[in-house]
Amino acid sequence: MRAAHDHVVQFYDDESYLCEAVTRFLSPGLRPGQPLVVIATPTHLDAFTQRLKVQGFDVESAILDGRVTLLDAGRTLSTFTDENMPDAARFKESIGNLFEKSRAGTDAMSVRAFEEMADLLWRENRPEAALCLEELWNELADTYSLSLCCGYAMSNFAREEDSDRFQTICSHHARVLPTERYSHLLDEDARLREITYLQHRALVLETEIQRKRAEAERVKPLEREKAASESASPPS
């Protein structure tokens, strides 16, 4: 039987919003003593910790008694990455052991985790490795009851060629959470307006892409004719 699993992706524009969103995700686990695992950059680890302290959580005590585990994303990634791609067996061993350790001595069956290793891979222009990592997280859910949030900077997907991979990233997650541009809109009318604006922008962009493709197809025969003419011309 597949373990209980919630795999969420949180996109963000500004890092302060990421901090807000992640601490909001982690807080429900700290209150009942659910094991928390946070795999992030050192800067983000510090920001998350400070924000949780402001909310009244005794993070140091939780770390000392093993309820909270903070890990450097880059270093953790290196424990199971082989020749630029995640190794499935090493991932399962590394992260599996981490989860077992975090649950030791508790009655909790589920682990709440945030990670941005996939985001690091994307920033390093290794999208296939990032997609592979997302698949490995989903496979790990066959063994562990897990509530997982993955953070991605929306700026990773600014190019036209990122569109299909962006949709693939979303498809690997049970829930997709938008950036602060939408999430901070509290009024339902404002949200509907924003969705409408985004739909219009998407239509304009798609129309422009199709126009450029049609123009490229129109020019190809002319370029071939020019190349053929130049190759047939006698040398001067």
Score class of each variant (00 low, 15 high):
residue 161 E to Q: 11
residue 102 S to N: 14
residue 26 L to A: 03
residue 228 A to W: 05
residue 39 I to N: 02
residue 176 V to Y: 03
residue 198 L to K: 02
residue 114 F to E: 09
residue 177 L to M: 12
residue 58 D to Q: 13
residue 13 D to C: 04
residue 125 N to L: 08
residue 181 R to I: 10
residue 1 M to S: 15
residue 207 T to Q: 09
residue 216 A to V: 02
residue 6 D to V: 03
residue 20 E to N: 03
residue 58 D to P: 06
residue 147 S to G: 11
residue 68 V to Y: 04
residue 215 E to Y: 01
residue 23 T to G: 06
residue 177 L to Y: 08
residue 200 H to Y: 12
residue 171 S to M: 11
residue 35 P to E: 04
residue 89 A to V: 14
residue 225 E to W: 10
residue 78 S to T: 14
residue 206 E to A: 13
residue 51 R to E: 03
residue 179 T to R: 02
residue 99 F to I: 15
residue 192 L to I: 08
residue 206 E to R: 11
residue 75 R to K: 15
residue 83 E to G: 02
residue 235 P to R: 06
residue 118 A to H: 02
residue 62 A to F: 04
residue 22 V to L: 01
residue 235 P to D: 13
residue 33 G to L: 01
residue 24 R to N: 15
residue 32 P to E: 11
residue 1 M to T: 14
residue 100 E to N: 15
residue 172 H to E: 08
residue 127 P to H: 06
residue 8 V to S: 10
residue 109 M to G: 15
residue 213 R to C: 07
residue 42 P to M: 00
residue 33 G to E: 05
residue 236 S to N: 07
residue 158 A to C: 03
residue 195 I to S: 03
residue 225 E to H: 10
residue 214 A to C: 04
residue 71 L to F: 07
residue 138 N to K: 06
residue 150 C to V: 07
residue 175 R to F: 12
residue 98 L to G: 12
residue 76 T to K: 11
residue 201 R to S: 10
residue 63 I to N: 08
residue 123 R to W: 09
residue 94 S to A: 15
residue 26 L to D: 00
residue 27 S to F: 08
residue 36 L to E: 03
residue 58 D to V: 02
